[in-house]
Every structure is written in structure tokens, then in C-alpha cells.
Design a protein around this nucleic acid. Structure first.
Lengths: 336, 336
DNA sequence: CTGTTAGCGCTTTCAC
DNA sequence: GTGAAAGCGCTAACAG
């Protein structure tokens, strides 16, 4: 049988409360007593039962995280950043994935709530009204992540997908591209991709370019990117640039161009989003938008911790920014 | 204040025990009583506190998972498979990552133990002696995953990395390749990669081929793969095939060959391991070993569940197999 | 079938 | 500074 706090108390000839105080680093314990207790803990190989502590203290030391999917490294990296940071503070992560389905998301959050997490991390800023209500009613701190919004449930750590999309389009325009088509991943609609597209559309409006069909919807796979190339070719009008909503689509498009003998960027420039490792390695290297996801995760972890200790946040929204990385896939179109 | 079980009991005019029985689906509750209790639960919007249940029942409904890193989709997919399966059974996953460090792994496991998980999932079959002891002493079921071993801590769900490496080398030999160099990822040594290499070495011995330096060590990145190509070129002796320990290395090698104008597979055949999406999309498409990771995860989930309910396992080791996928990157060497 | 009761192992007043 | 005792919300034995 595992040692419990009463065993330690008896062994150290103190009360259970004192052991608890030592465990939790309370100040009002004499040096001497503390030493005796610590020695007993050591000798009995006592490990506190965090479940019992959670019940008694009404604080579990667990944070719940909900992501759309773990298979995509973007989300996995954010989670990695969060756990890295929180582990140092004795907090554990409970994890679930929604498969990009807001209804499933709500279900998971409800289920998690029964486990009394101290806080929530949720990917994205779009959630069902029911989700928002449940979360608000629970009174648990919530950090949304990966995008920005003026109306967070509680607070948000992310970057502006809208601005990233918009600035990228402007950059392409500056570099001489005029016929830009945006490739969206329709199968997994989410606020991040939607905002990237809106940014593109805003830029188009500002620049007064491209009036015809400018958006193609594909699945967020390499094959989806390949199909986007086929679709663009079938449009029967000049297109010099494919602004893809993700690196996966962009890489798929580049590989398809390779197969079809279309020169990139000579005949078609291509951009992505995420800066996956492959983006800098592929030939031609891919112009894309880089986000420090692990950093975002660590930042979210810090905010989570601040919310736990009721610290006042300087702001409801923390912008971790993004960086446009210009590479070979968008060298100015040669020829005409 | 949230409703608690006593509130429900009062509201339904029954005892707390009865509510608990209804909650846990015990059979010995009359239809009528059950209905009344359910109605009260509904009306009071009662949600059981699983922390309290965990303490009382000595069963938390939480399973702890430890992976080396989440950023690599292989591990993330296994986790996804496990959670998918376990979520249907009301079990939640607690997650941590060790960064391929066995000492960190031990630390995490110790920390997790304090939260009284009902079981552990651990990546790999190599763990420190301390880890094995702690886990054994705790009496918690443990499922190791992603490889096979004769001496699991408790039980294991995986596939034979050794056999995969061995069979791949044999296949290459059958296809006419004679000068095969293995590229290992030395920076993140682990049992999976080690066994793949051993399989290759075993095959070489069986086939009596390649006596000189046959193994290159790189970091498991695209760049590592590129460097392996450079290293092989510098060897100054004929090498017709690069058998890479991971798809990441292999893709890096293919891209480097593209840059250097080395024909793949004409001058150099290349193989990978994992069958990432890029493997079938890259030009030339990559011969590799495919593992159904989500399936592995779901299988591990099932085993975890069986161990929880003290079901007798048919075997300590479950082999989910692998599949060699032959693609363009290993078409028989032309020319000489 | 159902109510009552005694814990699960810890934290947290409250006196001393 | 420290001990005693009352819960935290639930389950599980035990009567009835």
C-alpha cells in the first residue's frame, strides 16, 4: 500500500495539516519541522495523491486542450509548446480532438468539464453558441489560440490570419503578380483559413485586381493542391499565381507542376502558409508565412497560468505575429 | 454552485447511493426510480464530478500517454487513434513528451503516477531500469507501443522494425541493388530506428553484401537527408541505394539529388520509412514502409481497455504488421 | 430494490 | 507554528 499523508504525519510526529503545509510550500512552518517532514516523506517514498488534492483544494492542476486534429504538425506543435511550459509548473495537459467539427468540440468540452480542469485551451476562435455558454457558465478560464478576435470567450493568443493573407497578396502584387487565385481548403473550414482568404479578398479589393473567379476550394491534402493546378489550367484565362491557404496545398501544387512540366515560378508562382520544414527544402523553395507555433504554445501556457492565479492580463488578445518568408517560388514572373 | 449528487437525491426523493447506481448503470434500480432520477439530473443540469468519483472509486478514467515528441506526425497519429477509441469509452488522455530522453521519460511517468491514471501508454520498448521498476511497482497496466519486444514491461502493441528493415533490404537485393547504404538518424536514437538498422545489417549478413562503411548517421531532418547524399558521394565508391531510416531523411535525400542533378532511381535508388503523405506525391514517388498508425493507436486503446477490465490478453505482444510499398524511387538501376 | 453510512486522501479553517 | 477536525463529492458495503 502506498504511504498516505497520515503515515508521513505519524512518522514525523506532526499533524497531517503540517505535512500538507510543507507539501504546498506554506511559509509558516519552522525550519526544523519542515526538515523532519521532508525526511519522512523521503523515507516512506511518499507521493501525494493529486486526485485527492484536486477534490479537497478544488484545483486539479490539469488543463484541458482541444485541437481539431493532432496529425497536422501545426496543432501538435502548439500542444508541445503548451505542455513544455506547463510541465515546469506541475500542470498536466488533458487532450482531445474535434475533427474540425464544432458539435464534437462542444461534446468534448462538456466531457472535460466533468474532470474539473483548471483552465481550457481551445484552438480557433469560432465555436458554437452552446460551447461559449457552457464555458462561460463554468467559470473556468479559457484561452483560445491560433487566430485573433475582438470577442474572445475569455482571452486569445494568436496572430492575424486576415493580415497575413492580406499582406501576402499585397507583396505578390508589388512583385508584379496580377492574376492571383486563392486556394482554400474547403473540407476543413475553420476561422484560420477563412480569415486568410478574407485577407486575400480585402487586398484584391484594395488593389482592384482579379474580378473573375478567384477562389478555388480543395481538400487540404497534397492531392488537393494538385487538383487546384488542374482547375486553374482549365479556367482558360491567365493566372500567374496560386496563393494557397496551407503549405500542404502549395507543396501538392508544386509537385503537380513538376509532373506537368509547368515552370514554377516562371509560369506559375505559388505561395503557402505555415512554413513546414518541406517549404524551404522543396525545389523551388516555397514562399510562405511562418508562425512560431511552439512559441505560441508556450505563450498560451503562460497566459493560462496567469489566468489561473487571477493575474490581471494586460490585454484580452495577445498577438504573437507572423512572418512572411519570401523564397524562390515567387520570383517575379519572367517572360511577358 | 453546481448541483451535487445530494441535490439530485433530494430532488428525486431517493438516496445518494441510488443516484450513483443510476449514474453508473447498475442493473438493480427499478425502471420507475431510474426515470425519476434521470429527470432530476436533467432538471438540475447535474454533471458528476469525476475527480470525486476518481477518489472514491480508486479509478480515474484517465490514461497517461508518453511520446517522444508530438511534432512528428507518426506519434501524433498514434495518440489520435488512442483518443478516438478511448473517448467512446469515456476515458480521457493525459499527455506528455520526453524529447527522446529516457531520463525525462522517467520524470514524466513519476509525475503522472501521482495523478493515478488507470493505465499507461508509452512509446517504444526501451526504457530506463528505473522507469520499468517504478511502473511495475505501481501496479498500473502499461502498454508499450510502436515496436515489438520479448520482454515488455506489461504488454506491447507494435510491429517489427527489425523485420521491416530486413525485408526491405532483401527486396532491394532482389531488384538488383547491391551497394546499399543505410541512413540512420543518430540524433534521436531510439529502439525503432535502431531495430530498422539491425534488420538491414542482418539482411546484409545473410546476403553477404556491402562489407565497407554501410551506415551513415544524420539528424532526422530534411537537411540530414541532404547531407547523407553528400556523404555518400564523398565515399568514393559505388553506392546504388540509400536505405533511409525515415521518410523525412529520404525526402531530404531526393530533394538534394534534384538539386545536384543526380537521377533517382537511375543513379541512386532511395527508400524511406513511414509512408508520409509526401512519399506518394514526391517525384519520384518514394518506396517506403507503411504503418497504419491510427489503427495502431486504436488497437492500443483496445488493449488498454482490456487491461483495465482485467481481461486476459491472448498475448503479451500484438503485432499490427507493416507493409512495404514499392514505388518509383527504387526502380531497378538502369545502365551498368 | 433502496437508504444509510463510512470512507477515498487531501486541504483548510480554527483554536491553541 | 502546529494539531484537530470538518469537509471536498462520490462510491460501495451493508442493512433492510
Amino acid at each position: 500500500m502506498r504511504a498516505k499523508i497520515a503515515d508521513v504525519a505519524r512518522h514525523a510526529r506532526v499533524g497531517a495539516g503540517t505535512v500538507s503545509r510543507v507539501l504546498n510550500g506554506a511559509k509558516n512552518v519552522s525550519r526544523h519541522t519542515r526538515a523532519r517532514v521532508l525526511a519522512s516523506i523521503d523515507e516512506l517514498e511518499y507521493v501525494p495523491n493529486l486526485v485527492a488534492r484536486g477534490l479537497a483544494a478544488n484545483r486539479t492542476g490539469i488543463i484541458a486542450a482541444v485541437v481539431p486534429a493532432l496529425g497536422y504538425s501545426q496543432h501538435a506543435e502548439v500542444i508541445q509548446g503548451i505542455t513544455e511550459f506547463l510541465h515546469e509548473h506541475g500542470i498536466t495537459l488533458m487532450i482531445g480532438h474535434s475533427g474540425y467539427d464544432l458539435e464534437v468540440e462542444r461534446e468534448i468540452i462538456s466531457a472535460f468539464l466533468a474532470r474539473r480542469p483548471d483552465a481550457f485551451y481551445i484552438t480557433g476562435v469560432d465555436h458554437s453558441e452552446a460551447t461559449r455558454r457552457i464555458l462561460r457558465d463554468s467559470g473556468v478560464p479559457v484561452v483560445e489560440g491560433g487566430n485573433l478576435t475582438d470577442t474572445p470567450i475569455d482571452c486569445v493568443v494568436g496572430y492575424s490570419n486576415f493580415e497575413a493573407g492580406r499582406q501576402l497578396t499585397h507583396l505578390l502584387h508589388e512583385r508584379g503578380h496580377r492574376h492571383i487565385v486563392h486556394v482554400n481548403n474547403g473540407s476543413e473550414v475553420n476561422d484560420r483559413n477563412r480569415d486568410r482568404q478574407r485577407g486575400y479578398e480585402a487586398a484584391c479589393a484594395e488593389l482592384k485586381i482579379a474580378k473573375k473567379k478567384r477562389v478555388i476550394t480543395g481538400t487540404n491534402t497534397l492531392d488537393g493542391g494538385a487538383q487546384a493546378v488542374a482547375e486553374v489550367l482549365a479556367l482558360g484565362r491567365p493566372v500567374d499565381t496560386l496563393q494557397c491557404g496551407t503549405d500542404v496545398l502549395a507543396v501538392g501544387a508544386i509537385l503537380e507542376c513538376q509532373r506537368r512540366g509547368i515552370a514554377v515560378p516562371g509560369q506559375l508562382a505559388i505561395t503557402g502558409f505555415d512554413d513546414l520544414p518541406i517549404a524551404s527544402a522543396i525545389v523551388p523553395s516555397l514562399t510562405t508565412v511562418k508562425i512560431d507555433r511552439i512559441g505560441l504554445g508556450r505563450r498560451a501556457g503562460r497566459v493560462l497560468l496567469q489566468r489561473l492565479s487571477n493575474e490581471v492580463l494586460p490585454s484580452k488578445a495577445i498577438d504573437v505575429g507572423f512572418q512572411i518568408v519570401e523564397r524562390a517560388s515567387t520570383k517575379p514572373p519572367t517572360g511577358r
